[in-house]
Simulated assay, not measured.
Amino acid sequence: MTDPLPPVAGPPKSHFVLLDGLRGVASLMVVAFHLFEAYAANDPQKQIINHGYMAVDFFFLLSGFVLAYAYDDRWDRLSVGGFFLRRVVRLQPMVVVGSLFGAALFAFQHYSIYPKAGTATPAYVLLVMLLGCLMIPLPKSADLRGWDEIYPLNGPAWSLFYEYVANALYALGLRRLPNGALALLVALFGAALVHLLVWGPRGDVIGGWALDSTGIRIGLSRVLFPFFAGVLLMRIGGRIRVPHSFAVSSALLVLALALPRMGGPERLWVNGLYESACIILLFPVIVAIGAGEQAVDGPSIRLARFFGRLSYPLYITHYPLIYIFTGWVVDRKIPPAQGALVGVATFVAALLFAYACLKLYDEPARRWLAARLLPRRG
């Protein structure tokens, strides 16, 4: 990620621009996946860009890799409190915008697929907005629309909650593990993920946003393997150099996320095996390819840098628009030809809003917070 934050004391480090670009590609795929989801009618067999939700698991892998690269060798100059403060400065400004944006658009989301939306008072919406700004997860009984979301105004914020959980586990102890012990732990996390995917009731990793035993299990399974696999991948020098590395790694990622669902409704375990292979085997290869190229210029690098900067604002602000689009499509039974035009407009609106947030708020806010809260030396 491009962070306008003062560096931790120590030798300067090169930047993985292509990994930022891959995060941007994954964010674009998430938005497209959510738009197509309006026509899936809760039938995963119909979903276009079928595995787009696995972009979140890819985000977790990237995060572990990049955080380990940035901090693994600097804990002698950085306190745990300083680490958490840096993470809050990096992530929290856009969490606040996502919650505010969700509250602002909630009045336009009174559709039948949101059975609880019409019962929420303005005061309660404001309370949920404030709690969302503070990243306080809500129980299912406090949901605003009946979707059991821990952040009802901005559903994707659930993954930021588990990002913070993984960051805390890393900073408070797991960062100290030698590679052998970390590899064993990653293998155990991988086994838990495979068990969820192959023997679970869905055959996919969808879920994690509900504050119940099932939702927590899915959320932890989704974050623990990829995040700490990313840490391990960085430590063991996971780099693969190939020509046109951004194009190659982006194509592999898009293909993995876009393929149809495997196995059909009678053999859910087949899709579970596919997603296990993607998260455990393919995604680390894609990250290693992205990490193998650290060129600083060229058209692909400039494109990667742009979408990398845009990725987080896009991911954390697009879903309030999706609530409206999905309710409109489902309630009014909008045909795909008509919905496609509005879907494209929604996609463009999400991009423009994310870019405006990035330039007018996120980058200036992080610079302001960093100047006041973060020391120039760890």
Rank of each mutant, 00 (worst) to 15 (best):
P320K: 05
L233D: 08
K13N: 11
Q92I: 08
S99I: 05
F283C: 04
L91P: 02
G237Q: 00
H34S: 00
G308A: 00
V287E: 04
V97E: 03
A288I: 05
Q45D: 13
Y319T: 14
F228N: 04
K359D: 02
M94I: 15
L224T: 07
A123M: 09
G98F: 08
S300M: 14
N42F: 09
V231K: 09
S141Y: 02
I289N: 14
T317P: 01
V8E: 12
G155I: 14
R239C: 09
A288L: 02
V88N: 02
L232K: 00
H15S: 08
I240G: 10
L257I: 02
A247Q: 11
A258Y: 10
D73N: 14
E275G: 02
A107L: 09
R77I: 02
A288W: 05
I280D: 11
I136H: 01
S250V: 12
I316T: 14
T121D: 12
R145M: 11
P152K: 12
W199F: 13
E363F: 06
S213P: 01
R366L: 00
A247L: 15
W147K: 06
R87P: 07
L197E: 07
P4Y: 01
S27G: 12
F108N: 02
D57H: 04
L78V: 07
G237I: 04
V89I: 12
A157Y: 10
I301R: 15
D43A: 10
A183I: 06
P299I: 03
R261L: 04
A183Y: 11
Y39P: 04
A295Y: 04
G237V: 03
G298E: 15
I216G: 01
R366E: 09
L85M: 14
V8F: 11
D3C: 10
I236F: 12
E266Q: 14
I322W: 07
Q338A: 13
V231G: 06
F60H: 00
A210E: 15
E363V: 12
V8K: 12
Y39E: 08
G327T: 03
M129D: 06
L61Y: 08
F246Q: 06
V348N: 07
F65I: 00
L352I: 05
V125K: 06
P260H: 02
S245D: 01
A370D: 06
P313G: 03
A192H: 12
F325S: 08
P137N: 05
M94W: 07
F108E: 03
D72F: 05
P335I: 00
L220K: 00
F59G: 09
S245I: 06
L28D: 09
H110L: 09
T214H: 09
A354R: 09
P139S: 08
V8G: 13
